[in-house]
């Protein structure tokens, strides 16, 4: 029990920060704010009814991923994940100002959900079976794939297979992330893999020449390529499929079905496409995705 308290306090502090940060009001992300549904009514006792009545929702997202969830100078997270969150909140009858954004680093996402610190996590969150043992996923709302980013001048790496042939090359990723596990089978030795807490540290290490490559989902990498013009490039094909889901409390089937329905509605009324084109879609070499078929809610 003692272990839970610091985590909760930290989460509370984070949400306080997010609260004050949200006070600014208007978002300068390109997308128009989705209009909250006026007369949202839900069956009593469901998560939807609770959130709608409380007039507040807490959403966990990344704060350091360009295109998906990035807190920049505006102090508010911006990106595709954030727009998806706003779209879902709108269908609960909640406006942008009623959303509390909490940082959800890769390693803490399940815990934020199981401890009830957040109502949902939309944070480039790959659906997989081990995670499903602790939480439930709605979606997917996007399918990414893992790729490799190298420095502009690097020509020894053209795909994950080249790592084994060049044991002096080091590749960077984030502690506890799915890509960091996927890349292991391509390594000549575990020392080739360098892990940090956040992707920004990998970028610093690449600029310093301490690592020669970085791997994670393509959309995240495209963001870094666009942010650091002329310094980095992507090489090789996508070698995995990473369906991004929305993490919610385990077993909340009704809420899961609601979220899937909300995504479907967003896809039909064009706000899904708009969410993409105003955020991650602005980077070169990206295509407008179509909403993937939702998994069954179990």
């Amino acid at each position: 029990m003692h272990l839970r308290r610091p985590a909760l306090t930290a989460a509370a502090a984070a949400s306080l920060l997010a609260l004050t940060a949200c006070g600014g009001g208007s978002s300068d992300a390109g997308a128009d704010a989705p209009e909250p549904v006026e007369s949202a009514t839900f069956e009593a006792g469901t998560t939807m009814a609770e959130l709608s009545q409380a007039g507040a929702i807490t959403i966990g997202t990344k704060f350091d991923q360009p295109g998906f969830g990035l807190v920049g100078l505006s102090d508010e997270p911006e990106g595709f994940d954030v727009e998806i969150g706003k779209g879902i909140a709108a269908q609960l009858g909640l406006s942008e100002d009623q959303i509390e954004w909490v940082e959800a680093p890769s390693a803490q996402r399940e815990d934020l959900i199981t401890q009830g610190s957040v109502d949902m996590v939309i944070a480039t969150y790959t659906i997989n079976d081990t995670r499903k043992e602790r939480i439930t996923f709605a979606g997917p709302y996007y399918v990414a794939g893992q790729q490799i980013m190298v420095g502009e001048a690097e020509d020894r790496l053209t795909g994950p297979e080249d790592l084994r042939a060049n044991p002096d090359l080091k590749i960077c990723s984030v502690n506890g992330s799915t890509p960091s596990e996927n890349i292991r089978e391509y390594l000549a030795s575990p020392d080739q893999l360098v892990l940090f807490e956040v992707y920004d540290d990998c970028v610093t290490a690449m600029k310093n020449g301490q690592v020669q490559a970085m791997t994670t989902d393509n959309v995240i990498l495209t963001g870094y390529v666009a942010e650091n013009e002329g310094e980095f490039k992507l090489v090789g094909e996508q070698f995995t499929e990473e369906p991004y889901g929305i993490g919610i409390t385990k077993g909340d089937t009704a809420f899961c079905e609601f979220v899937n329905g909300a995504l479907q509605t967003m896809s039909e009324d064009g706000s899904y496409e708009e969410a993409w084109t105003s955020t991650a879609g602005q980077y070169e070499g990206t295509e407008v995705p179509t909403l993937p078929t939702a998994d069954a809610c179990a």
Binding site: L3, S106, A107, Q108, R109, E110, D111, N128, D129, T130, R131, E133, R134, C172, N175, G176, S177, T178, S180, E181, P190, D191, L193, V194, L195, F196, E197, D201, A205, Q210, V211
Partner: peptide, 29 residues
């Protein structure tokens, strides 16, 4: 030291098991 890219030590083991592989956090800790 695990936070600065030194892979494989006990704290990375924790991150790897609890987050990437989704084991429950408390027993791993």
């Amino acid at each position: 030291v695990g936070a600065i890219g030194v892979g494989g030590e006990l704290f990375s083991v924790y991150a790897r098991l609890s987050s990437a592989q989704g084991y429950e956090r408390l027993p791993v800790l």
